[in-house]
Each structure stands twice: as structure tokens, then as C-alpha cells.
Nucleic acid binder design. Structure first.
Lengths: 197, 197
DNA sequence: TTTTATTTTTAGTGATCACTACAAAAATCC
DNA sequence: GGATTTTTGTAGTGATCACTAAAAATAAAA
């Protein structure tokens, strides 16, 4: 079993790389938001015509789903790493918020969180795709907390989601890294206080 | 000087009430967001045709400005009332956040804050209109804090904006009042902690 | 009654949206 | 070389967007 990867398929070969296109699409969607990126923006950036676009990706929303998958795999907050079971709960939560502040302000052309911004877009297909990723990340936060603080888990996870959504908003407003970090530090005070009480 | 208000103007009379239309527009814009409301949605809701719309309001964006003005006058967080100079700073800030939680979840068809949602819309004219209202409310928060805690004012005001943006987001996600209030309470812990230290 | 001023309705404008029917092009398979 | 398969480019589709020219309608003013 050597072949299969190198072997060319039968028909006319692609003149563009779909994975590269997904990466380009991620930049566009992150910079401008799903609704503000048109299919013609995408095809132009890819250097292809609409029929090639639809043959490769099916629809704008399906491409967005691929972009979201790539985003969570490559650029989203690495929750599993930050929320290890042996880590103090407050420490893990504060690490998530601080990591978020850094990530959300890292690239001025891709500020905020793609998922948190996606859940507010107008297109319902794209919105529900983003929502499922958001629900998953909320779940990870909740389970991490509930393991040791089941009674406070719901409220703390909600507070985390609220703070992350706020940080993403402020990042998209152009707020600088140090101001985001200052807000992150304040949010940490609430977490400490709630878990020490 | 008696007349002027009762006296009919010269031409054909209006068949609709612009102030009532602004109120209707507020409902639509708040429920769906600026970009998701079309001029034809508006004219249909008003019971008028496009030319009447443009004669009365100039453009969709100009109508939105009138709606924002009405919103801040009638339904926004009453910051001047909550941030009286004789009130302890922490108490005032917590009151704002708690009031926000209540307002943002009060009407399921108008969840969140119209200004905070407006600053993220696609249309640049509408966005900058919303931004100026947001800047103003951030300024009120900053000055209220700076009066007694000038060194912490910037960070605390940023934290307030971040938290309010987060609460608006979560409200638009459909989060219930009691969960928003729980997050508001946690945010209050951060404020207390920061100001007592 | 005629003139003037304003709002109305009719019927559009061109731009852009996401998306597609169709056939030529370019590769492999037989 | 001819058949098959897939992607390509050309050239659109109808829907919807914000917005408008023009004239009929309706009021007060002269």
C-alpha cells in the first residue's frame, strides 16, 4: 500500500489548493466577519471562478464550517492544554482568560475570537455552525470547574463565557493588548474571590 | 405666540407618524440588528412606500441615528442616575452592571444593548453612529471612577465596558436573567476587590 | 378657482448577492 | 487515439439591496 496519495485522479487537475484557499478564507472571515465577506471576495482572493468555488466547497456556509474547523485546530484557545485536571481551578481559568487576551489582540487583521464573533452573524447556517463550537468550549470550561466545584460551575462557566465574549468585543473595537490584559487581570480577581470564599 | 404647532403646513398631509415609525424601527433594529433589517422591512412595518421613507428620514442610516437617540433617551442604562458623585464607586459600578443584566434580558425580542450591538454592524455609517454613543457611555464610567480613583479608572472603566459587552452578547445568545445576574454578581467581586486593595 | 407646497403612489434604477447551466479544456484509462 | 472523468471559464440566473425620477393627490394660500 504505497500509492493513493501521489496518484493523480482521473480528470482535469485542480489549478488551486483547497487547503490554501481555506487558510485564505480564514483570514477574510476573521478580518471582516462572515456576512461581510462575499463569494466574489473569496473567489477573487483564491484566483478562481465561482463554479470552481462551488465544485470545491459546496457553498459559502460549508466553506465557513471548514474554516471554523481549521480555526479551532490551529488558532483557538488551547483549552485542553490549559485546563488540565491537576491544575488549580482558578489558575486554569485565569490562564484561559489571559491566553484569550493575548490571542484576541495578536493580529490586528484578525482580532477577537472567530467563534464568538461567528455566533452573532446574520446567516443562520454559519451562525449555528459557530454556535456548536461555542457550546463545546463552554462545556469544556463547565466540566473543568464542576470536577472540583460542582455548585459554582454553572455560574463560573457563564462568567467565563461572558468575559471572553467581552474581551473579543473589545479586541475588535481595537483595544490594545495591555488594556485587554488589565481587564483579564480584574476578571481573575472575581474568579479567585469566588473560589476562595 | 399661540400657533405653530396646531397649524397645518401647506402641502398634502402625512399619512403616518414619523415618531411612531422611529419607535417601530427601534423594535426592528434592536431585534435583528442594523444589517439584518432592510428598508423594505421598515417601509412595510410603517405601512408606507420607499419615497415616503426617504422623504421623512433621508436614509436608513439617518433613521438609525434617530433610533439610537431615542434608545439612549428611553431604554439605555441610566448612568447619570446610577453614577451619582456621592455614591461609593464600587456601589455605582455594581449598580450599572446589575441594571444592565436586567435591561439586556428584559425583552426577549430586544435582548442585549442596542449600542453595544450596533458598534459591530457591517454598515460603517451606522457603526460609527453607535460608536459615538458607546464612547460617551465609556466616558461617563471613566469620569465617575477617576474622580476618586484616578489611577485605576482606565482599567476599571475598560473592565466595565468589557463586562457590559459580554453581558449583551450572552443576552443575545438567549441567556436567562438569573444567569446574567449571576455573572453580574461575579463581576462585582472583581470591582470590590480592585477598589478595596 | 388658481397657484403653490408637500406627500403620496407607481414603477422603476443599477449594484450586488449567492449560486448555476453549459461546454471547452485537460488530465487518465482503455 | 478515443472514451471517460473532472475542472475549468463563459456567461449568465433570479432575488434582494438601498435608493429615486416623475407625476398624481391633497392640502393651504392667493
Amino acid at each position: 500500500m504505497i500509492t493513493k496519495n501521489k496518484m493523480r485522479p482521473r480528470g482535469r487537475p485542480r489549478r488551486f489548493d483547497p487547503d490554501q484557499a481555506v487558510e485564505t478564507a480564514q483570514q477574510l472571515f476573521h478580518a471582516k466577519g462572515y456576512d461581510a465577506v462575499s463569494v466574489s471576495d473569496l473567489t477573487e482572493a483564491f484566483g478562481i471562478k465561482p463554479p470552481s468555488f462551488y465544485a470545491a466547497f459546496g457553498s459559502k456556509a460549508k466553506l465557513y464550517e471548514r474554516v471554523l474547523e481549521r480555526f479551532t485546530r490551529t488558532e483557538a484557545i488551547p483549552m485542553p492544554d490549559l485546563l488540565r485536571q491537576d491544575r488549580p481551578v482558578a489558575e486554569g481559568l485565569k490562564a484561559v482568560i489571559e491566553d484569550a487576551a493575548h490571542r484576541f489582540a495578536a493580529d490586528p487583521d484578525a482580532s477577537g475570537c472567530m467563534v464568538l464573533e461567528g455566533i452573532r452573524c446574520i446567516d443562520s447556517e454559519a451562525r449555528s455552525a459557530a454556535r456548536s463550537y461555542h457550546a463545546n468550549s463552554d462545556d469544556m470550561l463547565y466540566r473543568f470547574i464542576a470536577e472540583r466545584h460542582p455548585d459554582q460551575a454553572r455560574h463560573l462557566a457563564d462568567y467565563m463565557s461572558t468575559t471572553l465574549a467581552g474581551l473579543s468585543s473589545m479586541a475588535r473595537n481595537g483595544q490594545s493588548l495591555d488594556r485587554l490584559l488589565a481587564s483579564a487581570r480584574l476578571a481573575g480577581l472575581a474568579i479567585e474571590q469566588e473560589l476562595s470564599g
